[in-house]
Amino acid sequence: MTINQMAEALGLRVLTAPEGERECTGVYIGDLLSWVMGRAQCGDVWITIMSNINVAAVASLADVACVLLAEGVVPEEDVIRTAEQKGINLLCAQQPAYELAVRLHELGL
């Protein structure tokens, strides 16, 4: 499943999707950035409520498929711009992380 397909299936708001055709291969949920860098896998959908600028750097370095902000969190405009420049797919949803994870599991992740 690609990022674009996931966004459509879950009705997610796409903030920026410079790599929208990238495949998602797993899911990781976490807000502690170093923890995420230590545990998330390349290609994961990273679900978090952390929306500061460092999230873009962590997503880029950990090479996750996208950042999915849960619980209605919307980042500042400069975070969206930075994500776009770094080629990071950034999406947001109203649902909590658990609900998103359940839906992603139903979709095969």
Partner: peptide, 15 residues
Amino acid sequence: SLGFGAGMGLPNMKR
């Protein structure tokens, strides 16, 4: 509060 300082920095560097 920014999501750092979880005590994972050096362990991740080793990992």
